[in-house]
């Protein structure tokens, strides 16, 4: 039946309303509260609603005096940013490669979907279990070490395999590469294959086609995947804790410690700082992807 003019059609924006409501109620408002509380005062047993920059000042207390030595808080943030960039770079390269394989080398759509689903298998179990299962593999007497010893390649177990920066990066990459694969694959699947032929016809080599055609057209996926990975790694304290053997500090851990001590204003201040740094990194990465346009 064709709709008559008098028929009532509800406005389309109603479809977006439920999520907009959830977003406002559980994200925007709490975020504003966090910013507000970060400027409140506190003592040992209560928070005091009066404006002060105390939480921020105390967070960076003594940092200026110690220069050029880095204070603990700056070292911690630096270490988190370092993990973030290393993990971003590795997941980007691995994720891009897998997505490229799926989009351009696997011919049938059914096969593409099957392989993409296989990538989700690790998510069928919890984060913590996936992390802990590295322990028997990488531990002092774990599978890797005993295999290398038996093979006579090493005389004593390699210590840096577990509870080290290596194992933290390994776990991050293992956990989050998938978040790069899917958005990048999604962007690549939309690229018209004739464009690759057109580039070949114009004399472009494989690398030139990759750099001048595939990467710019996959950029939306790269940006989305990067945002996923960067925000997760920046805020993480569980993976760093478990895989670092509780020996490596992280920005998330600072917040958790403050919360456990019921010091809400400093926790909120650190959350705001973390948010600012994360936004900065994402902006910088986006600029970085845009640089090639200028070449």
């Amino acid at each position: 039946m064709p709709a008559t003019k008098t028929a009532y059609a509800p406005p389309a924006w109603l479809q977006a309303l439920p999520f907009a409501g959830v977003f406002a109620l559980f994200f925007v408002i709490p975020l504003l509260f966090v910013v507000m509380v970060s400027f409140w005062d506190y003592n040992d047993y209560s928070i005091i609603p009066s404006f002060t920059t105390r939480s921020y000042v105390e967070t960076f207390e003594g940092c200026y005096d110690q220069l050029p030595e880095l204070c603990t808080i700056l070292k911690t943030y630096l270490s988190t940013v370092k993990f973030c960039l290393i993990v971003w770079a590795i997941t980007l390269v691995i994720g891009f490669t897998i997505a490229y394989f799926l989009a351009f080398h696997v011919q049938s759509v059914t096969m593409q979907m099957t392989l993409a689903l296989i990538c989700t298998i690790p998510f069928w179990t919890s984060n913590v279990i996936r992390m802990i299962s590295w322990v028997p593999l990488l531990g002092r007497n774990g599978l890797v070490n005993s295999a290398l010893m038996k093979a006579g390649l090493i005389n004593q177990p390699i210590e840096w395999l577990l509870f080290s920066q290596f194992s933290v990066v390994l776990a991050f990459v293992h956990l989050f590469t998938f978040f790069m694969v899917i958005p990048i694959f999604n962007s690549m699947a939309r690229i018209d294959k004739r464009l690759l032929e057109a580039a070949y016809d114009a004399g472009a080599s494989g690398w030139q086609t990759l750099w001048n055609v595939v990467i710019p057209l996959a950029k939306p996926g790269i940006v989305i995947g990067s945002i996923f990975v960067v925000t997760i790694v920046m805020g993480d304290f569980i993976t760093v804790g478990v895989m670092g053997g509780q020996q490596i500090a992280s920005a998330g851990k600072i917040i958790e410690t403050r919360l456990n001590a019921l010091q809400f204003p400093p926790a909120a201040a650190n959350a705001v700082i973390l948010l600012a740094i994360t936004l900065l990194i994402i902006t910088a990465l986006n600029r970085f992807v845009d640089i090639r346009k200028e070449l």
Partner: peptide
């Protein structure tokens, strides 16, 4: 070659 539906680079 001029391709069917032209295959211009959209970006």
């Amino acid at each position: 070659m001029m391709f069917q539906s032209y295959a211009l680079f959209p970006h």
